[in-house]
Design a binder for these strands. Structure first.
Length: 495
RNA sequence: GGGACUGUGGGGUAGCUUGGCCAUCCUUUCGGGUUUGGGACCCGACGACCCCGGUUCAAAUCCGGGCAGUCCCA
């Protein structure tokens, strides 16, 4: 029995989330990444993780294209003069990786490995977009981005190279740009909440926490089990700032030169992956939504070497059922390795495969199967005749269970108060959202945010909800300065 | 950005304080036997002291630097 404790994940998710997260990602867990590559902040994405990531990409491609975006691919490198043409990008140039040599020779012009797309894309937009007839213009790309940010790294949460997804839209009016922000939120709802079963709140960020090159930033935040906020996407209302910096101009109906309005939307594929692991997983490992799982159903044969006849029968049956399920259109595998069934059960549970089917001598005789969901692990005997129906049902129940559990978890992580003392007290022991009345999310509120951060040891004002924001009552006073509260804001510690 | 810590076969570790003997144990992998309804067992084999330098008769162990990783706090 003592040995069992050493295999797989050795800590409970609720007791030590950091350690649990590491173990799930690494060798002793689901083998999602390999951190032994040897360059700081750069990790290897292993097949199981990469298959999941690709599926998330596919979902976004589908939704984003449905919304009229065209795919393109801009280069990995950016000329220095383009990068620094916009003030804020010039500001983070120190964190950019530069290519300065080729072979033994110095380059005449150093180029940056792209941190984000704006400075690569917008100079070309200036060439492509000339007339009001070219608008709206909606493009997107997915790319790897490198950036020397944090000194510590954490798979899917912090790193120097990450998978990036960005839309870059240009409109004739600010109103259309605003509508796009709502559209981006809907894309997040469709992909992240509906397909991945991950809860989040879409916020309007305070002025001091926006992307500095933007007029406004909107972001979707979820909470990790340690209570820290995880920003899963952002949409920037760029106003006309970049159009002016990169000379994107159009002629309107009257032949007059105008600056168009821009937005960009970036779902953080990495951050979403982190949420998928952290929020759905349990002490045994990952739990994947049915649609996302690289393998949706795993068939585990249970054989007995004493009886070769029966073994043959069981294996044949497994193959036959696999073909059947494949024809239903699902991704299914049979585990024919030499391991014991118990080992296989644990292994596939670690990987988060949603549905397991067990076939042993009993099933081989009876035209039945044993089926179990990853969520409840309850075993149920079903008739083969009803297999398709049962799979569909199990998948639906599983996804419903996952969604309900995640939403309930998320709701349980929001408290509210209108006193500073209580806020400090709550933040000391608890991590999650705390709703408080707050003076202002315009720049005049920044001082209060700084004080709040200091006194709560790291609490951030995440912003106000974009949809149905809670309205501050006339009598509500800012928790920090005591002046009239214009908003109810959400406060949380952050990754 | 600040602080603490760690680096020993593929993974997880013991040994390091107080330098010295064949570097411990579990697991993985490979070969063989046996077993299989919730991480089976037996026999055998492969496999490691992060890198560079220093101290010393002698370094996994002490010192310096580098590289990499973890945790806590901004």
């Amino acid at each position: 029995m003592g040995k069992e404790e050493k295999i797989g994940i050795t800590v409970k998710k609720d007791e030590n989330f950091s350690e649990w997260y590491s173990q799930v990602c690494l060798e002793q867990g689901a083998k999602l990444v390999d951190i032994r590559y040897g360059v700081q902040g750069f990790v290897v994405h292993r097949p199981w993780a990469f298959k999941i990531l690709r599926r998330v990409y596919d979902y976004f491609d589908e939704e984003v294209e449905k919304d009229g975006h065209q795919p393109f691919l801009f280069p990995t490198v950016i000329p220095e003069e383009n990068l620094i043409r916009e003030k804020e990008h010039a500001g983070f140039a120190p964190d950019v990786f530069w290519v300065t040599e080729a072979g033994t020779e110095k380059l005449e012009r150093r180029v940056a490995l792209r941190p984000t797309g704006e400075t690569a894309i917008y100079p070309i937009y200036a060439l492509w977009i000339r007339s009001y007839k070219d608008l709206p213009f909606k493009g997107y790309q997915s790319r790897i981005t490198v950036f020397r940010n944090e000194k510590t790294t954490r798979p899917f949460l912090r790193g120097r190279e990450f998978m990036f997804y960005e839309t870059h839209d240009v409109f004739a009016t600010h109103k259309e740009a605003t509508q796009q922000i709502t559209k981006d939120m809907e894309i997040m709802e469709e992909v992240v909440r509906k397909k991945l079963k991950l809860p989040f709140i879409f916020f309007k960020r305070p002025q001091w926490d926006k992307f500095k090159g933007a007029d406004e930033t909107y972001a979707s935040d979820t909470l990790m089990p340690d209570g820290k906020r995880n920003q899963m996407s952002s949409t920037h209302d760029l106003g006309q700032k970049f159009a002016k910096a990169y000379q994107i101009q159009i002629q309107d109906e009257n032949g007059k030169e105008q600056y168009p309005w821009q937005t960009c939307f970036g779902p953080g594929i990495y951050r979403i992956m982190a949420a998928l692991i952290g929020i759905h997983g349990d002490d045994t490992g990952l739990i994947l939504p049915f649609d996302v799982a690289p393998t949706q159903l795993i068939i585990v044969p249970i054989t007995f070497s004493k009886d070769q006849e029966k073994t043959k029968k069981v294996i044949a049956k497994c193959q036959q059922i696999k073909e059947k399920i494949k024809n239903f259109g699902y991704r299914v595998e049979v585990d024919l390795t030499e391991n014991s069934p118990g080992f296989k059960f644990n292994n596939w549970e670690m990987l988060g495969v949603p549905i397991r089917i067990e076939i042993g001598p009993k099933e081989a005789e009876e035209e039945t199967l044993t089926i179990a969901r990853r969520t409840s692990r309850e075993k149920k005997k079903i008739k083969i005749a009803e297999l398709e129906k049962e799979i569909k049902k199990s998948a639906e129940i599983l996804e419903k269970e996952m969604a309900e559990k995640a939403e309930k978890y998320f709701e349980g992580k929001t408290k509210e108060t209108n006193s500073k003392k209580e806020l400090i007290e709550i933040m000391r022991t608890y991590r999650g959202f705390v709703k408080v009345p707050f003076c202002s999310i315009s720049s005049d509120g920044e001082k209060c945010a700084d004080i709040l951060k200091e006194e709560t040891v790291g609490g951030c004002v995440c912003g106000i909800k974009l949809e149905n924001p809670e309205k501050a009552k006339k009598t509500d006073k800012c928790v920090i300065c005591g002046k009239e509260a214009k908003h109810i804001v959400y406060v949380a510690k952050s990754y």
